[in-house]
């Protein structure tokens, strides 16, 4: 074979190779992007078809287009309310400035804007409430799980209680929590709303258990060799927990935390409906009571937002797990 024909062969091979690569790239692209998009489109189509055939006493069941409209409306409501608020403060400031101009000793009143919470305010309230409840649950569940994982006797003591309370619905807890909060949280100038505390504690009570159970399993299944190392070094309990127990149980603890947060987020909506905590649950309840022709569309917006936030919270925990975990090669999903 002459040199030129070899060269030609090589360039031909190279072209083939790039073509192969290109195909692979497209394949991967399809898998990563096109398939999920296809799935979503099919879902939207089906939704629209089904929605067209359902008529309720509040009008037709909202399809994707109506839901999109309502989401635009909610954004517009929010902006309108913010503008109103801004102009309210502006007027108040001017009025007070005038007053002070006339009489520098005059007492000026500063009022906070009395307008109603918008959809976005309610999202923020929900997030704060779930975060607070989840935090309380974590602070109780992780130490409890570690103690029960380390000590067989502690586990045997606590296990029946865990198994009994684990399947209890948030709705069962709520009346009790409401009464307890009303009875115990008495203050002239409360820092937290009672409805906030009721919702947060209900969330905490329900999302305690996955973290407890998974932490126990994680701690109880530490490699025996590592425990023996700790015994040979005569590590005291505190160092043993910090250096050996927690790092090896971290993956299981996070599995528990992620399940807990997902549970907590679900429980929160129910709790807010009944406790009238001004979050997404209350939004849905109010819209339902409202019974306008837009209500169902707005509730559907809330449903989607709840879903997306739940998904985002899980990703957030996953990112946190990645940051905390020592094993950077571990595949986390």
């Amino acid at each position: 074979m002459s040199a030129t024909s070899i060269m030609a062969k090589v360039s031909e091979l190279r072209k083939l190779a790039t073509l192969e690569n290109f195909k692979l790239l497209i394949d991967n692209g399809i898998r990563a992007m096109a398939l999920p998009v296809l799935g979503i489109c099919m879902f939207l189509l089906l939704w629209q078809l089904v929605a067209n055939n359902i008529v309720t006493s509040l009008g037709q069941f909202p399809g994707p287009t109506q839901v999109y409209e309502q989401s635009q409306n909610l954004v517009a409501d929010h902006n309108r309310e913010r503008n109103k608020e801004a102009s309210f403060y502006e007027r108040q400031e001017k009025r007070n400035a005038k007053k002070l101009e006339k009489n520098p000793d005059a007492k000026v009143k500063v009022r906070t804007y009395p307008g109603k919470a918008t959809f976005f305010d309610q999202i923020v309230t929900s997030l704060i409430t779930v975060a607070f409840g989840f935090l309380i649950a974590t602070l109780v569940a992780v130490p409890l799980g570690i103690v029960c994982g380390l000590s067989e006797s502690a586990y045997r003591c606590v296990n029946p209680i865990i198994q009994t309370f684990k399947p209890v619905s948030p709705l069962a807890w709520l009346p009790l929590v409401t009464m307890v909060v009303s009875a115990l949280y008495v203050s002239e100038d409360p820092f937290f709303e009672k409805s906030f505390l009721t919702s947060a504690f209900t969330v905490a009570l329900c999302c305690l258990w996955p973290t407890v159970v998974n932490t126990i399993v994680g701690v109880a299944s530490i490699d025996r060799d590592l425990i023996n190392v700790s015994r040979v070094l005569q590590l005291n309990a505190w160092v043993h927990i910090r250096k050996i127990v927690i790092p090896s149980a971290i993956p299981m603890i996070f599995t528990g935390l992620r399940l807990s947060l997902a549970t907590g987020w679900m429980v929160l909506i129910a709790a807010e409906m009944l406790a009238q905590n001004p979050g997404l649950g209350k939004f849905i309840w109010d819209e339902f009571q409202n019974g306008s022709s837009h209500s169902l569309g707005r509730i559907m917006v809330a449903v989607l937002v709840i879903g997306i936030i739940g998904f985002a919270l899980d990703r957030l925990m996953l990112a946190l797990q990645r940051a905390v975990s020592w094993d950077k090669q571990a595949i986390l999903r």
Binding site: D223, L226, V229, R231, L233, Q234
Partner: peptide
């Protein structure tokens, strides 16, 4: 009881 005066090298290294 176990103690550091009798150090053990484990078969599977047992490093943290």
């Amino acid at each position: 009881e176990p103690g550091p005066d009798r150090a053990v090298v484990f078969q599977n290294h047992a490093l943290l």
